[in-house]
Amino acid sequence: MWRNIASNFLTLAIVLLIAAAAAVAWAKREFSGPGPSAVAQCVQIAPGASLNAVSNRLAEQGAISNAYIFRAGADAMGKARELKFGSFLVEPGASMESIVDTVTAGGPSTCGTEVVVRVGVRANTILLRDMNPDTGAYEEMARFDPATDDAPPAIAAAQDLSDVRLSMVMAEGVTSWQVVEALRAAGFLTGEIDDVPPEGSLAPDTYQLSKGGDRNQILAQMAARQEIILAEEWEARPFGLPYETPEEALIMASIVEKETGVAGERPQVASVFVNRLRQGMRLQTDPTVIYGVTNGQGILDRGLRRSELDAETPYNTYRIDGLPPTPIANPGRAAINAALNPDDTDYLYFVADGTGGHTFSRTLEEHNAAVARWREIEAQRGLPTDSPVQTGG
């Protein structure tokens, strides 16, 4: 009898082992195979969310077939405790394994309702981004200029959502006044800004905002980031540059930032101005004159007048020696790096070449020929040909 019992028990154990192995194999296929969702979905992970809550939410959305298998697989991958806060786009048919990778990798959110305050050189814009349910793509849904327009209903409604993401994108080369105006236009923020921060002191970057956040704290964060960047770049500078202080390097970086929109040209532009400082030549750069006219409050939608080029002001580098007294914009790290690591050239002049970039010259003769070519391009395009030219004109 005991022999029969033992034999039956052994048989049952083998059957159970086979069943367990089959179940494990099935679970692995479920975890790594195509998921059940036929459409793209937005997975939102709240700060401090548990894996259990996230897996149940995914199952309810139909993004995964089994919450338990999702949790077990995440644990097996060693990622059960690595959930990252944000909103993440899950492609149609995504496997549970790929979803685990997505929600634990971190990085910028790729879906969900987002209101972005963009500080641009020409204008500030507030825009709404969200996932288009028809295409599954993350798209811009609405935008407006807070200086001239009222918020569209879609943006006004989005700002009141409990799970909306809020951010500010500050472009390189904007002025501190433009940043302050953008913060004041963001109605979901709080706090009165009494004074515009010193020019150049704010770091262009993307900043995460929160509903009810204090505007002055955001400015403090921008200033702290710029201080770190400038200190790091100043510490790593080579010897022999014509700057006595980090502030002077920041002034030069702001000029470089405003003189070219071509990233690869920054070190060349910086070399022209560094060479001029070393030789005691005036910088003769239009952006500094423009700053003296506008005081950084908006843009100058016209060419400089001869009277403005002839005026004796602290920012008229056609009239003063050396650098202007302050930066003329908030430069990014790349411009700061270029100012402190200029190319080794003997260029003293540059002028627009018609492609968005510039022609660099070593002598006044070369420069005058380049200016003549630019005047021809201006005439062909119907542009005024009596406007000032850049550096050395």
Rank of each mutant, 00 (worst) to 15 (best):
A158R: 00
N295H: 06
A338Q: 02
L323Q: 04
G292W: 06
A6H: 09
I64T: 03
N295Q: 12
R306L: 04
V274Q: 13
D160P: 01
R282Q: 13
W2V: 04
E97Q: 15
I14N: 01
E365K: 10
I229M: 04
V269E: 07
L16T: 08
R118P: 04
S109W: 02
N368M: 14
A158N: 05
T294N: 13
F273D: 04
D286G: 09
L230K: 06
E248L: 01
V117E: 06
P325D: 09
R237E: 04
R276N: 00
R143I: 13
V371F: 08
E365T: 13
P198G: 12
G240Q: 05
Q380N: 15
F350N: 02
N132E: 14
E114S: 05
D194W: 07
E30M: 10
E257G: 11
G93R: 13
R143G: 07
A151K: 10
V196P: 00
E227P: 03
S87D: 03
S201P: 00
P47D: 01
I218R: 00
D346F: 13
A13K: 03
R165F: 06
A105C: 10
P384Y: 05
V179N: 09
L209S: 11
Q226K: 13
I69A: 11
I290Q: 03
A38V: 11
Q279Y: 07
T355D: 08
